[in-house]
Design a binder for these strands. Structure first.
Length: 119
DNA sequence: AAACTGACTAATA
DNA sequence: CTATTAGCCAGTT
């Protein structure tokens, strides 16, 4: 990565997502000080080197689903779902995560449900 | 340097 | 619910 600065921020944020919680790309971007750069967050994830301790699997899209990615192996999304399930995250019939319940809420609870749920 | 690409989101229709 | 449009910006070609 030519500019790891942004990636570092993203990793920092992702790293502090507690177990059993998920965060959206937009949320991570905002917390990383890159509001509106949700795309860059996803891009950063794909650029992560192996051996990284960043829980990238806890980052999902705003719909609460695992974003389909163009992985040659094609097992990336499957693995992500497995990892989340291991942490106690439940999926509904459609394979989605109820953000209303599992969304990571930094701050004492100012967001989620009552406030602007997402962007 | 210019054009493409992409693990995204939100607003409309 | 799906489809379309537009905004966003770093990394690749």
């Amino acid at each position: 990565m030519a500019n790891p600065g942004n990636y570092a921020r993203i990793c920092e944020v992702v790293r502090r997502i507690p177990r059993g919680r998920v965060a959206t790309y937009g949320q991570v971007a905002r917390l990383a000080g890159l509001a509106g750069h949700a795309r860059q967050v996803g891009y950063a994830m794909s650029a992560l080197e192996d051996g990284t301790r960043v829980p990238w699997h806890r980052v999902i899209n705003a719909r609460g689903e695992i974003s389909p990615r163009s992985d040659p192996a094609g097992d990336g999304d499957v693995r992500q779902r497995e990892l989340l399930r291991q942490e106690g995250v439940m999926f509904d019939e459609r394979g989605r995560v109820p953000l209303m319940k599992f969304r990571w809420r930094p701050r004492g609870g100012a967001r989620g449900g009552a406030e602007s749920a997402e962007e």
